[in-house]
Simulated assay, not measured.
Amino acid sequence: MGVYSGLEAEYQVRSGVVYVRNPEDREQRCTQVSLARWSRFLASVKAGQFTPQQEGDVVTITIDDQSHATVTPLPSFVVTNRRTWKLFVKAVERGEFDHLGNQRTGQ
């Protein structure tokens, strides 16, 4: 089950993690995040407490806590642009990604 609104997030039942990526990334890089970390990340975005690194139009979002969990480590961040970040923040504020964090409890 995935959600796309600026950024794409998909919960993988088999691995028990959320994969997050920028669909405009031609190299298809993603980061993986535990459900607990994903929920905390969403809460901090909603509360206006998460500030990504920004240089010009480039926005780097570091939310990874699982880089050690794969044979081939994934990046610990997602790179996007200001427009996509703003779309994502609005979607988070509307609760569009909340159900991914509820996967562990079956809600």
Results as ranks from 00 to 15, higher is better:
94 R>C: 03
22 N>R: 06
95 G>V: 02
54 Q>M: 00
14 R>I: 08
65 D>T: 06
22 N>F: 03
51 T>W: 10
72 T>H: 05
90 K>R: 12
32 Q>A: 15
21 R>T: 02
59 V>H: 07
41 F>R: 03
65 D>Y: 04
21 R>D: 00
86 K>E: 15
92 V>G: 00
32 Q>H: 15
35 L>D: 04
86 K>V: 13
9 A>P: 07
14 R>K: 08
5 S>C: 06
6 G>P: 04
96 E>K: 08
102 N>Y: 11
61 I>A: 09
40 R>T: 11
24 E>N: 10
57 D>A: 12
70 T>R: 15
87 L>E: 12
59 V>C: 13
78 V>M: 10
30 C>I: 09
8 E>P: 01
4 Y>T: 03
50 F>S: 06
84 T>L: 14
49 Q>L: 15
88 F>G: 08
74 L>F: 13
83 R>H: 15
95 G>S: 03
83 R>S: 14
15 S>Y: 10
105 T>N: 00
84 T>R: 15
66 Q>A: 14
87 L>Q: 12
107 Q>I: 04
73 P>C: 07
11 Y>N: 07
2 G>F: 10
95 G>F: 03
87 L>P: 02
16 G>V: 01
62 T>A: 14
58 V>S: 13
73 P>I: 01
106 G>P: 00
80 T>N: 07
53 Q>S: 02
57 D>F: 01
10 E>T: 10
51 T>C: 05
1 M>S: 11
96 E>H: 09
46 K>W: 05
44 S>H: 09
92 V>T: 07
61 I>M: 04
84 T>Y: 12
77 F>T: 00
68 H>W: 11
32 Q>W: 13
43 A>M: 06
80 T>M: 09
97 F>Y: 06
52 P>F: 08
91 A>W: 10
74 L>K: 08
7 L>S: 10
79 V>N: 08
35 L>Q: 11
67 S>E: 14
54 Q>V: 02
95 G>N: 08
64 D>K: 06
72 T>F: 02
58 V>T: 13
57 D>H: 01
43 A>G: 03
7 L>P: 06
87 L>K: 15
12 Q>R: 13
85 W>H: 07
61 I>L: 10
73 P>M: 02
23 P>G: 01
6 G>C: 10
1 M>E: 09
78 V>K: 00
15 S>D: 10
53 Q>L: 04
